[in-house]
Design a protein around this nucleic acid. Sequence first.
DNA 1: AGTGGTTACTCAATCGTTATCGTAATAAGG
DNA 2: CCTTATTACGATAACGATTGAGTAACCACT
Lengths: 358, 358
Amino acid sequence: MVRLSDIAAQAGTSVSTVSIVLSDRPSPVRISEATRQAVVDAARALGYTPNLAARRLRSNGDQTRTIVIAIAYPLDSRLSLISRVVRGVQRQLQAMRDDLVSLRVTVQLTIETFELGSLDQLRGLVEPLWFNGLLVTNTSTADDTYLETLVPSVPIVMFQRQSPRSSVNTDSSMVGQLAAEHLIGLGHRRIGLIYPSATGSQAQALRIGGYRDALALAGLSLELEAPATGTNWAANAHAAAGTLLDRPAGERPTAIFATNDLLAIGAMRAIRDRGLRIPDDLAVVGCDDAEFAAYQDPPLTTVHLPLEEMAARATTILLDLIYQRVEPPVHEMFPSRLVVRRSSDPRAGAVTERGSSS
Amino acid sequence: MVRLSDIAAQAGTSVSTVSIVLSDRPSPVRISEATRQAVVDAARALGYTPNLAARRLRSNGDQTRTIVIAIAYPLDSRLSLISRVVRGVQRQLQAMRDDLVSLRVTVQLTIETFELGSLDQLRGLVEPLWFNGLLVTNTSTADDTYLETLVPSVPIVMFQRQSPRSSVNTDSSMVGQLAAEHLIGLGHRRIGLIYPSATGSQAQALRIGGYRDALALAGLSLELEAPATGTNWAANAHAAAGTLLDRPAGERPTAIFATNDLLAIGAMRAIRDRGLRIPDDLAVVGCDDAEFAAYQDPPLTTVHLPLEEMAARATTILLDLIYQRVEPPVHEMFPSRLVVRRSSDPRAGAVTERGSSS
DNA sequence: AGTGGTTACTCAATCGTTATCGTAATAAGG
DNA sequence: CCTTATTACGATAACGATTGAGTAACCACT
C-alpha cells in the first residue's frame, strides 16, 4: 500500500503538496508546474491508489464522489427491468463525462437486500455519508417513512415512486387506465385483472387503481380479479388466471389485464391450456414491455415505460441536487405508452411486427 | 454524528472500553457485566452508528464484514438471471444466520459497470480493502488477468467461470453438448447455432465449443452458425436466424440451438414468420431456463443451470475462505440439466407441462 | 507486610488524508 | 536597502475507531 508520504519522499516534497496535487480540487495553495509534474510522475511510478477510508474519515463524506442506486428487497423478477435503469444511468453519465471528469462519479448499483427491519443496514451506509447521492427504486411503500427520516442530508431521487422528495415517475395509475381503456375500446365488457398479491410496490397499487377507475367509469364490474401469490409470477398467474377462466360460461372474462408481463405470459398459457385462442377468445394485455413481450406468440400487447430515459433524467437531477444547482424537490413525470400487439388486437399484427423488429 | 467518546462520557467510562464492548469481538481485555450494560444502554440511547471509514482506516480492512458481488459490464439481459444468484446468496446467508450474527455480513450486489479500462474503479474499492470477500460473476474473459493481479489479499470466488482462483461453475461445454446431443438423438442432421457475437463471456465460448464437439463427434457439419450482433438479443437473433432459414431447401437446418433463451425466442419468431412449425419443421433449444422459457408457445426446451444452489454454495465457500476454514483454491462443479419441452420434442408436451406448473 | 495473580479497566499511538496556518524565498515598490 | 506582496510550499492537528502496553485495585497466600 503506497501512501502520500511515499510519493512525497520520492518526489522530494511534502505530503501536503502531494495531497493538493493529486486531488485536483480548488485550493488556495498554488503549486508550480514543476513540482506538480514530479508528484504526478512519482504517483504513477509507485502505482498510488487513494485510501478512501482515510479520505472519507477526514473529509466527512464531502469527497466520496459516489452515487448509489439502492434497490429494495424483494428481489423479484423485476430485477430484469433494472438492467434498463442501469443502462440509462450509465449512458447519461457517459454523456456528461466532461462534467464528471473531475468528479470521478462511480455508479454502484447497490442492491441492498433490505427488508423493513434490516433497512438499518442502509443506515450504516448512509450515516457516515458513504455516498453523495441516492437513487431509490422499487422499495415497498412501507419503507417510505423510514427513508424520509433516515437521510435528511443526502440528495435522494425516488424512481417510480411518488414522494415529497425528488422523484422521476410515470403516472402509474395512467398505466392501468391505458390498458383498461384499450380493452374497453375493443368492446370488451368483462375484463379480468391479475396482479401480484404480496407486493408493497406503489406502482403496482396505482396500476390496479387506474384500471379499476377506468372500468368503473365505463360502468363495468370489478369482480373479475385474481391475485397471483408468491414470487414465481408466471406459474402463479397461470393458476390465478385459471380461477377466472373456469367460471361459468357467461361470467368468464373476454380480456385479461396483468400488471406485469410475466404474469401476462402465465395467463396466456392458462388460456391456451383450455383450448382458447388469443386474442379471438381472450385478449391479453401486460405491463412493462419486457424484452420477451414482443416475441410471444401472439406478441404481447403491453404498456411501455421509458425506463432508460427516466433513469437518465434521474441521474441528471441527482447530480444537479448534489452540486446544488437546483433546489429540491424536483419532480418529473414521464408518459407511458401502450404498445398494441396481436395479443389484444388481431389487426395489430403486421404493422407492429415490422416496427419492433427493426 | 455520535462518537465512541460521546458514549464513553455518557456511560462514565473510556473510549477503549466502549470500543471493546460494542464490537463484541474476542479481546484479551475483560469487561464487567455492569459496564458492558452501561455502555450498551448509552449507545442505544444516543443512537450510535459506527463510522465505517474510521474503522476501516484503523483496522486496514480486517473488520469490514462485507461481501461484495461484482458483476461486470456489459449489463445485458443476463441481469435477469442475476436475481436468481442473489436469491441464492441471500437464502444461504439466512440459513447461516447463527454463524453470522456476530459478523454482520452485508450483501451488497455491487454492479460495477466496469469495462476493461474502468476496471480501475474496482481497484479503488479493492485496494483499501473495502470488503472481505468478492464474488465475481459474468466478467468478460479479458478482465481475468487483471483480476488475478488485482486482488491477491481478498478471497475471491469466481462464478460461472474457470479460474485458478476458487470457483463455482457448471460445465459450460457440457451445456452445449447436452443440447447438441439431444437434437442429434432426435435425428437431426442439420443443426444451426445462434450465439451472441460480441460477448467475452467464457461460458458462452464453452457452450459453443461443447456444441461443436458434439456435432463433430457425430460427423455433422458445423457450417450453420449465425452470430447475433448487438445487445438487443431477441431482435438480433431474429435476424440471424433468418440467414439460416433462408438457405436453399436442402441446406436449411432442421433444428436450432441458441446459447441463451432470449436468442431462442428471437429465433422462434423468425421460424413462425416463415410459416414453419415448431418443433415439426424446426426444433429449438435454448439455454439458461429463463422464467419465460416454460411459458413460450410451444414451451422452450432449454438447459437449466442450478444458479441458486450454486450461489448458495459460493457464499459458503466465500465465508469459509474469509475465516480461513479452508485453503484456496476451492473448486466446485454443478451439473446442468436439459429440460425437454415441446419446442424440441412434441412428445414432451403433457408431462413437462404439468410438472413445471406445480 | 510483601509478593503474585487476577480482574477491570485506561492511555496513547496509530491508520492515511485533508485543511488550516505558518513561513521561506523571491519579486515588486518606495 | 528596507518593506510589503506574492508565490510556493511545509508542519501539524484533526477525523473516529482500534489495540497493545500499561496500571490501579483487589484478593489470596506465605
